[in-house]
Design a protein around this nucleic acid. Structure first.
Lengths: 223, 223
DNA sequence: TAGATTGTTAATCGATTAACAATC
DNA sequence: TAGATTGTTAATCGATTAACAATC
């Protein structure tokens, strides 16, 4: 059974026969990246797994195993060369190029995502946003908002590869279809709907409810 | 090693000796809940695991196993009584009472969360928000915004149990300390910082970067 | 050298999937 | 009864943790 759509689809196989990094490793890489960048801007040259592990509260063995996926080798008694590690992680995440994205649905969540400055750190740029409602046409947070008809044109002109779905649930599948038709290769889905897409399109389902479920279950139902 | 802080801390043990539902099950429960509510509002009485599984694209065996945690028993050839399942899931998630929450940091993400109407479906209510910046004082999306000094007072008066952390990274730990001092029992952390809290406070780290990492790795680095 | 750190292999743990019995 | 569906036990798979060898 295919579980790609779930928020934490850590258990997939598909075409990952040769990869020796797990999904959990991939999810931790941004933590390392953020920390390493900070260390670098503090003037540090090497990072030891013990130090990284303690700061991020992760087991040091896991840190070494995760970092070994980058291909960078640490030096015993010294640690890993930060200047090597950062680009290696970026490459592993596909964050080295300039990834162009578009956003569908400029509601509350959509606007928040448009204004989020962090995406650039991930080599990400939201090239444009789209909304059916003509009232939101214009420019929000320096990003132009167009009607959906212009989607394909923008995707082609700007080489957009990622679509962000922030529509009301009722329009989720319709929006996904439009994104696929326009030619995106990955969809970051913020709706609670499991959208159906062709096999060659990757979907990441970002579900706030599942996170909240875990938190409130632990607070109210345990101990 | 304690991994509670990670976005997908699916591997914890702690005080869950007697529980027979896994973290992954808990994360899936909101999906079932949403679907069952929709079915109920469509006038349906029973839900079969096969139908739920197909709609949500989950293995039917897993659906049955997940639903069995609720204590509700399905009837062979018929399915599960929706009217029993809904309150059972709500109880398992702690979503049956009226959970009061407060939000720290009324920036872009914070405002989006304030305006998100979905929380009420999860039995959640944001009672108040707090921000150091006096300029944002007032009312946003019908929710009052106060200076941090009022936090403890509000937590006590409104029986607040959950704190939502939507501050800039640099103030994350400071904000967490304030939430703990004010008496919340759980923190939903939207900053990329691993905050340190006493053992009796539950933290859920909601990390968009990890989701994006998985998506872009699959799009750009696989196949 | 001694000691700190890396990096790998084996054991364990948790979650999913497969097989199948039970039930209406 | 026959057949569809539930529900449980065993096998498999993936990820973490433990143990320890290798290296500077």
């Amino acid at each position: 059974m295919n579980n790609d759509y779930l928020n934490d689809s850590d258990s997939e196989k598909e075409n990952s026969l040769t990869q020796d990094y797990s999904n959990r490793t991939i999810k931790r890489l941004p933590l390392y990246l953020r920390m390493l960048r900070q260390m670098q801007s503090n003037g540090e040259t090497y990072a030891s797994s013990a130090y990284v592990a303690e700061t991020l509260m992760i087991d040091p063995v896991m840190v070494r195993k995760d970092l070994s996926c980058t291909g960078v080798h640490g030096k015993p008694r010294i640690g890993f060369l930060i200047a090597d590690l950062i680009p290696a992680i970026e490459r592993l995440l596909g964050w080295d190029g300039n990834v162009q994205a578009i956003l569908l649905g400029v509601g509350r969540l959509g606007s928040a995502l448009l204004g989020y400055p962090g995406f650039l750190k991930y080599g990400f740029r939201i090239a444009a946003a789209f909304d059916i409602n003509p009232a939101v046409k214009g420019v929000i947070s320096d990003i132009p908002v167009y009607p959906p008809e212009k989607m394909k044109e923008v995707v082609e002109k700007e080489s957009v590869t990622i679509g962000i779905l922030a529509l009301p649930a009722a329009f989720a599948q319709e929006g996904a279809d439009k994104l696929v038709a326009a030619g995106v290769r990955g969809i970051w889905n913020f709706t609670p709907i499991r959208i159906v897409v062709p096999k060659n399109v990757v979907v990441r389902h970002e579900d706030l409810a599942s996170g909240l479920a875990l938190l409130s279950h632990k607070v109210f139902c345990e101990k």
